[in-house]
Amino acid sequence: MEQPELELNKKVGITLSVIVICAVVFTIVFAERKAPVAAANAGTAANAQAAANNQNSASNSSVQSSGVTTTGPASETNAGGMMSSGMPPADMPKSPMMYAYKNGTYSATGSYMSPGGEDQISVTLTLKNDTITDVSVTPAAGDRTSERYQNRFISGYKQYVIGKNIADVQLTAVSGSSLTPIGFNDALAQIKAQAKA
C-alpha cells in the first residue's frame, strides 16, 4: 500500500517542481527582456523609497531643514549613480522636474552610541541639480577617542583649497593674518641673522 502512494507522491512532487522551475525561468527571461525600462522605474522608485526610509527610520536624527536626511558619502554616489541609470545622458539638459532632489542646503545631526557614550555628528550639504556641490561634516564628539575617529571620517570627505594669484582675481581688499608690527619684523630679521652666524 505504501509503495504505490510514495511513487505517486514522488511523481506529483517532481512534476510540480518542474512546473515551478519553468515558471521561474520564464519569469526571469521575460523580465530581463523588459529590463531597461523596468529597472529604471524600479531604480527611481527604490531611490525615492530609500529616501523616504532614510527620513522615517532615522529616529536618532534631527533634520534641521526640510529635505532629505543624508549620510554624506553614500548619498554622494546615490545622487550621481542611481539617477543616471536608465535616465537620459548626463550632459543633456534636464528640466527642473526631472531632478530627484530640490536644490538647496540641508543639514542633519545624527546621534550614535560609542563606547564613550552618546555622540553626535552633523552633516551639511548643498545640492545643485542632483549634485553635491559642498559638504561639511562637523564632529560633536563627546570624548577624544570619538573625536579622533570622527575627524578621520571627515577628512576623507573634505575638499581642498587652492590658491589663485591676487593679480588674477578682481578684489577690493585682502583679509589675512594681521600684518606684523614693524618691530616684530625687525626682531625676526635680527634673530635670523644671529642664527646664521
Binding site: I162, T172, A173, S177, S178
Partner: peptide, 26 residues
C-alpha cells in the same frame, strides 16, 4: 591689518589671503 568693517549699499570683494603664499588668495 586685514580686519575689515564695511558699511555700504554694495558689497565688496575681499580676497582671503593664502597663508602659505601671501601673493595668492584661496
Amino acid at each position: 591689518g586685514g580686519d575689515i568693517l564695511h558699511k555700504s549699499k554694495r558689497p565688496i570683494r575681499v580676497g582671503l589671503e593664502d597663508p602659505i603664499n601671501t601673493k595668492q588668495v584661496l
